[in-house]
Simulated scan of single mutants.
Amino acid sequence: MFIQPWDAGLDAAEWQTWIAGGHDFGLLSVNGLPGRAPVAVPTHFTSDGPDLLVHLARPNPVWKAVENDPNVLFTVFGDYAFIPGPWRAKAGTPPADGVPTSYYTAVQFTCHAHIIDEPEAKAELLRRQLAHFQPDGDHAPVAVGRPPYGRMLPGIRGLRLEVTDVRAKFKYDDHKPVEQRTNVADRLTERGQGLDVPTARQQLRRLDRTGPWKP
């Protein structure tokens, strides 16, 4: 993932706060077997300290790829929007001369994957995930040998992704003039399509922290 200096995360707390704010779905990317394409799996995840936890169906083709090479990437992205060219035109130039772009946040984790097959360890992984996604506890106990989850455990495998590096990108035109960034955020809010509003929030949040871009 290419990151311009003005798009880089300001500190670790920035991406950690963004992830904790409900961004818990990502793309697991694994090197393919020799002569085969890479394997990419969209999935929810939860955190356990610095590690990421995932579970997938046993028939998933990702397992052979992970066993062959446990060095994987996990990418989370969001708060994205297409920015039309006229919104980015320089002051005093024709609007049609503006060049369009995309705004987005992306956090990419480089990980070493550890497969979890022991039944109680898989049950504990599911308990942690349910505690995150269903914190009200409105589900049956997850226990080995006890329905409904007990009979399903053999059909899944778990992954503990040991994070070795994190790269965060917040692409919101931080290098552009303050007035232009504010104007784009206003236009996004007014348009209000898809993720326009959260994208505008990210741009204004970064603007509040950085002000005019300084190399």
Rank of each mutant, 00 (worst) to 15 (best):
P42T: 13
V30G: 06
T105A: 07
R151L: 08
E67P: 13
P198A: 11
Q134R: 04
A96E: 13
D97K: 13
A57V: 06
A91E: 13
E67H: 15
V184A: 15
T93I: 07
A123G: 05
Y80G: 04
L195G: 03
L125H: 13
G21C: 10
V76E: 01
R187K: 09
A65P: 14
D69M: 05
Q202H: 01
T101P: 06
L73R: 08
T189I: 03
I19S: 03
A121Y: 12
V144Y: 04
R181C: 10
N68Y: 14
Q108C: 09
A57E: 10
R206D: 15
E14H: 08
L204T: 11
P141G: 13
A20Y: 08
V54P: 00
H132A: 08
Q16W: 01
Q134P: 03
H132I: 04
P5E: 10
D79H: 14
I116L: 14
D11G: 13
P141R: 06
P50N: 09
K90V: 09
V54W: 07
A8C: 14
P119V: 05
I19E: 00
R58D: 15
K171A: 01
Q202N: 08
V107M: 08
L52G: 05
W6S: 10
F77T: 07
T101W: 02
L125D: 05
F45M: 02
V54I: 13
L73Y: 04
R201M: 05
A89Q: 07
L126I: 12
E179T: 09
G9L: 05
G92V: 04
L56N: 04
G158L: 08
P70Y: 07
K64V: 12
G85S: 07
E120Y: 07
A168M: 08
L153D: 01
D11A: 11
T189V: 11
G85P: 05
V62M: 05
P34Q: 02
H44K: 06
G26W: 00
E179F: 12
L204C: 07
V30N: 10
R187H: 04
P59V: 15
A140I: 02
A13D: 00
D7N: 09
P147G: 13
R187L: 12
D117C: 00
H114N: 12
N71W: 10
F170Y: 02
G158E: 06
V197S: 11
R206P: 10
P198N: 09
T101M: 11
V41L: 15
A12C: 02
L159W: 02
D186N: 14
Y104N: 07
P86C: 07
A40T: 15
R205S: 11
Q129R: 10
W213V: 04
W18D: 05
R151A: 15
P5T: 01
D138M: 00
S47N: 13
P94A: 05
Q203A: 15
H175T: 07
L28Q: 05
D138A: 02
S102F: 14
V178G: 01
P198C: 13
L188F: 00
F74A: 02
D7Y: 01
Q16P: 06
R127A: 03
M152C: 14
G9C: 06
L126E: 03
L28D: 09
K171R: 14
E179D: 14
Y172G: 01
K64M: 14
P94Y: 00
D165W: 00
G26L: 00
H44G: 14
V41W: 15
I3S: 03
V99M: 10
D48C: 12
V30Y: 08
F82P: 01
R209I: 09
V99L: 13
D11C: 10
V66D: 12
D79W: 08
D24G: 01
